[in-house]
Every structure is written in C-alpha cells, then in structure tokens.
C-alpha cells in the first residue's frame, strides 16, 4: 500500500456533512503543489443559502473552489463543490451533470450519488474520502468506489466531530485507510 500516491488516480471525491467544514478547509489549504487531478467536494450544507459557503472555502484554499455549471468540463487542478439543492454527477465524457432528482437519504446533493457516478466513470482511478457527518450518506457511495477498484479513505471516527458518517462508511465495505486529518493531508502529499 505504501507506494499509493495521488498520481496514480484521475480524481478525488470527498464527502462530508456536519463537522466536516474545518477538516475540508485544512485539506484545501494543504493540497499538494502542482495538483494535476480534479478534487470534487460533495458537502451537505444549508439548503437554500446559495452564497457564503463557497467564499468561506475559498478563503483558505490553495486552489480555486467553484460550483460547476451543468455539462461543465472537469479540469485537473481544480476544486469543485456540489451546488446546493442539486445532485452533482460525473457524466460520461468527463463533464459534470446536475440533477434535481428526489433527495437520497434526505440529502441533495447526495454524497452517494456523486461517489457512485464518479466511480462509474473513473473506475479504479478514483480516490474516495468520507469525513465527519451525522447521517449515513456516502456509505453506499464509497462501497461503489471500492467495488470498482478505487481507493477508499475514511476520517478516523475517534477524531471526527460527528462519527456517524465515518462509522456507516466503515460498516459497508473494507476501507483502505482510516486516517486523521493530518494523515489525510500527508497521504495527499506523498
């Protein structure tokens, strides 16, 4: 496992909910120099607040964080955030697609759906990371990532401010690494 580095992959998807914001900020601040794959964030957020959140993320991030528009091309070295009240899909042909389909596990955006669609396109070239959160969204998604040969990481439940989501993820599949925030950052930089 030691030689796994993000250079072996085509994209990183990160899912988080309650308690994940500081972790995400820390990760975005410490992304490696010369990052040449996209980072796709699916975070639960206040449903009808369109602004503010992305500004807060951008304040610290090393790379620009943007909310993709429908059918926007997915580019390396960019950080994308699922827009509020839409599901964010990775579409065939390396673009995003948005959807207002029914909520999944009371969530839109749904982490499960972003992970599933990303793993369908990137197969074993995808890294999936699940962070702190208060429900089980992401568990089915990270299982798909694993089933399709991708690499899976879950925030250590003992560090997560709310451990429901990491624990749910750990229950559905054999997760490759269980890491604290610092270790996640080290992994991304090795």
């Amino acid at each position: 496992m030691d030689q796994v580095t993000i250079n072996n992959f085509r994209a990183i998807v990160i899912g988080g909910s309650a308690g994940s914001f500081p972790v995400i900020s820390e990760i975005l601040l410490n992304l490696p120099k010369g990052l040449n794959i996209p980072v796709i964030l699916c975070l639960h957020r206040l449903k009808h607040i369109r602004h503010g959140f992305i500004e807060a993320l951008n304040l610290k991030s090393k790379y620009m964080v943007c909310e993709p528009e429908d059918k926007e091309k997915i580019l390396p070295g960019k950080v994308y955030l699922a827009p509020s009240n839409y599901h964010l899909y990775v579409e065939l042909g390396n673009t995003f697609a948005l959807s207002t389909e029914e909520m999944v596990k009371y969530s839109r955006p749904s982490i499960d759906l972003t992970f599933e669609t990303a793993s369908y396109v990137y197969k074993d070239k995808l890294i999936g990371i699940i962070l702190s959160g208060a429900n089980s969204d992401g568990a089915d998604g990270i299982k798909k990532v694993k089933d399709r040969g991708g690499f899976t990481i879950v925030q250590n439940p003992s560090e997560a401010s709310i451990k429901t989501m990491p624990e749910a993820a750990l229950k559905t599949t054999e997760i490759d690494l269980v890491l604290n925030t610092k270790e996640i950052i080290n992994f991304l930089n090795r």
């Binding site: 059918k71 899909y89 990775v90 579409e91 065939l92 697609a97 959807s99 389909e101 669609t117 369908y120």
Partner: peptide, 8 residues
C-alpha cells in the same frame, strides 16, 4: 437525454 441521470 443526459446519460447518467437517464440511466438512473
């Protein structure tokens, strides 16, 4: 139709 959502 967009493939991913239509497939779903």
């Amino acid at each position: 139709y967009a493939t991913t959502s239509f497939k779903r």
